[in-house]
């Protein structure tokens, strides 16, 4: 019965080809360091899922941001768990993506024909840092506020365009309600959309070009 349904669907959707193409690829002999890309992808999905659930209660306004997070932590069943995973997952994601990048560098996997995979991956790393930067403000406690004051000031010392960068990041001269809402927008819409698109490109390149083998004595 199920086999028949599966065969009917497979004839039209091509699950088997998809499975062979996406997951059943030949791999060079590797080790645990080669699993960090998948770990990064898993963390991205995890952050996306917990982040979506956090927006059920989180309110991006200076009047409510802090109180809504206190409510998530103390007032809602398992709110501490969802936020805890998002909080620790954020640090872990930066770490895992960075180690994944180091592994690629040390195993020289960025070389021909995988230069684009490396460039897209570098952008993914920068976007991950952007997620950390924008997410840090959202609790809107003292630490978040002053961290954003300092970090946007760092943008402000760029020669020439610094003051403009500062105002563009803050949405004005001060860290304010505008800063909070634009960081929120970047954190839940713009950066994740860019991340998802580039992850798609990254995975496509990996499927197209395969993974590199570790260099040996002959290389």
């Amino acid at each position: 019965m199920f086999k028949k349904i599966y065969a009917w669907l497979d004839e039209r959707l091509g699950f088997d080809d998809l499975y062979k193409g996406l997951l059943d690829r030949p791999e060079p002999h590797g080790n645990w360091w080669n699993t960090l890309g998948s770990a990064s992808l898993f963390l991205f999905i995890m952050q996306g899922a917990t982040g979506i659930f956090l927006t059920v209660y989180y309110t991006p306004s200076p009047d409510h941001a802090y109180d809504s997070i206190q409510y998530i932590m103390d007032g809602v069943a398992f709110g501490w768990l969802i936020r805890g995973i998002h909080h620790w997952g954020a640090s872990l994601m930066v770490l895992v993506v960075f180690i994944h990048m180091l592994r690629t560098f040390f195993s020289a996997s960025y070389k021909y024909p995988r230069e684009l995979t490396w460039i897209v991956g570098s952008l993914l790393f920068l976007l991950t840092l952007g997620m950390g930067f924008t997410g840090y403000l959202l609790p809107f406690n003292q630490r978040a506020y002053w961290a954003t004051v300092v970090a946007t000031n760092i943008g402000g010392v760029v020669p020439g365009v610094g003051p403009f960068i500062l105002r563009a990041m803050r949405g004005g001269t001060d860290v304010s309600a505008l800063t909070l809402s634009r960081f929120f927008s970047a954190h839940i819409w713009m950066l994740p959309a860019a991340l998802a698109a580039l992850i798609g490109a990254h995975l496509y390149l990996i499927m197209r070009l395969g993974e590199s083998a570790y260099p040996d004595a002959d290389d």
């Binding site: 659930f53 809602v76 768990l81």
Partner: peptide, 15 residues
């Protein structure tokens, strides 16, 4: 382990 807490999280105010 994630799905069950999430359901509780979503319906909590209704309870």
């Amino acid at each position: 382990a994630m799905g069950i807490p999430v359901i509780g999280y979503l319906i909590d105010p209704a309870l």
